[in-house]
Simulated scan of single mutants.
Amino acid sequence: MKPLILFTTVLFCSPLYAAQLELPQGAGSRTWQTEELLKQAQTITVKDDVSYKRDMTYRAVPVAVLLPGIKADDHLQAVALDGFAAEMGAAPLLNRQGAQAWVAVEDPSQPWPPLADGKPSAGPFYLVWTNPQAGHISPEQWPYQMASIKRLAPVAERFPALRPDPKLAANDPVNKGFALFQKNCLACHRLNGAGDAQVGPDLNLPYNPTEYFAAGYLKRYIRDPQGLRHWPQAKMPAFAPTVLPDGELDQLVAYLKHMAKRKQPM
C-alpha cells in the first residue's frame, strides 16, 4: 500500500497595510510601510486642501523627521503613481515653522474620500502643507498618491535642454522664469523632450504655448485653466496671484517665450 500523503494548504494573506513609501535617508533610502507611519502620525487639519478643495483632517507625519541626513540645499523629486514628478528643493520640506510639509497617511480602515466621481482617493500617501501661504507653496508641491521622494542632481544638470541661453545674466527675468518653471510646471510637463513628468504635453515641441495663445490669453489660462478651456478631466490647477504673483507670472512667460527660440530636434 502506498503511504498516505497529506497535503496541507497554506494561505498567505497580504498584510493589512501593504502600501510603501520610499524616502531618501543619508546616503541611501528607506522604505516605509503604512503601518509604520501611522504609529508615529498625529492628527492635523489642512485648510482649503489643494486636491479636495475643502478643509481636511489627516493622520500625518512631519516630513522633516522622515528625511534624516538630507540637507537644505539638496534637490528632491516627489514621484506619484500616475507619473507626476514634482521637483523641489529640500529646504521647504525640512522647515518646522511657517509653511510645514507633512506626509498624510491613509488608514485602510478609514479610507479618504475619492478625489472625484469614479476616481481614487489622494492616498495612500499625500504630501500636504499647513500654513502654505507663508512659503508661497505651489499647487504642484502637493503630490498625491505619492510613491517616493528621491534625491537627485539639480534639474539644469539632468536636463541641459531646459536651460536658457548661458549668456544671460543670473538675475535676468528669463533665468528667474526658469526657476519658476521648475517649481510650477515641470511636475506635469516636459520641454524640448526633457523632464521626468508623464502627465501633460511638452511645452516647446512641436509648438510653444507662446506661439499659439493670443496676447494675454496664456496668462489667463495659467491663472484659471478651466475658465478659458473647460474640460472636466483636466488636471492642471489654477495658479492664483497669492501663489504666483503677476511679476513672477511675467517671468515664467518670458522663459517660455525665450525657449521657443531654443527648440531641440524631435
Rank of each mutant, 00 (worst) to 15 (best):
M146I: 10
M146V: 02
A147Y: 12
A147R: 14
S148F: 07
S148Y: 01
I149T: 08
I149F: 05
K150H: 10
K150G: 06
R151G: 08
R151M: 02
R151E: 05
R151S: 10
R151H: 05
R151A: 03
A153G: 07
A153M: 07
A153I: 00
A153C: 05
P154H: 13
P154S: 11
V155K: 07
V155A: 02
V155M: 10
V155C: 01
A156Q: 09
A156H: 06
A156M: 03
A156L: 00
A156C: 04
A156E: 12
E157H: 13
E157Q: 15
R158M: 06
R158Y: 02
R158W: 05
R158H: 09
F159H: 13
F159K: 08
F159Q: 05
F159G: 03
F159D: 03
P160M: 04
P160F: 08
P160D: 06
A161T: 03
A161R: 05
A161F: 03
A161W: 11
A161Q: 11
A161C: 10
L162N: 11
L162K: 03
R163D: 11
R163E: 10
R163S: 12
R163Y: 14
P164A: 08
P164C: 10
P164F: 15
D165V: 01
D165Y: 04
D165H: 03
D165R: 00
P166R: 05
P166S: 12
P166D: 09
K167M: 07
K167R: 14
L168M: 04
A169Q: 14
A169C: 03
A169H: 05
A169T: 06
A170K: 12
A170E: 12
A170I: 07
A170G: 13
N171D: 15
N171P: 12
N171V: 09
N171T: 14
P173E: 13
P173R: 11
P173M: 08
V174D: 07
V174T: 00
N175K: 11
N175P: 06
N175T: 03
N175D: 11
N175Q: 09
K176D: 10
G177C: 11
F178Y: 15
F178V: 08
L180V: 04
L180T: 10
L180N: 12
F181C: 00
F181K: 00
F181S: 00
Q182D: 13
Q182C: 15
K183E: 08
K183S: 08
K183W: 05
K183L: 06
K183T: 09
N184V: 01
N184I: 04
N184E: 04
N184W: 13
C185W: 07
C185I: 02
C185M: 08
C185V: 02
L186D: 01
L186F: 02
L186E: 02
A187I: 01
A187W: 10
C188L: 01
C188T: 03
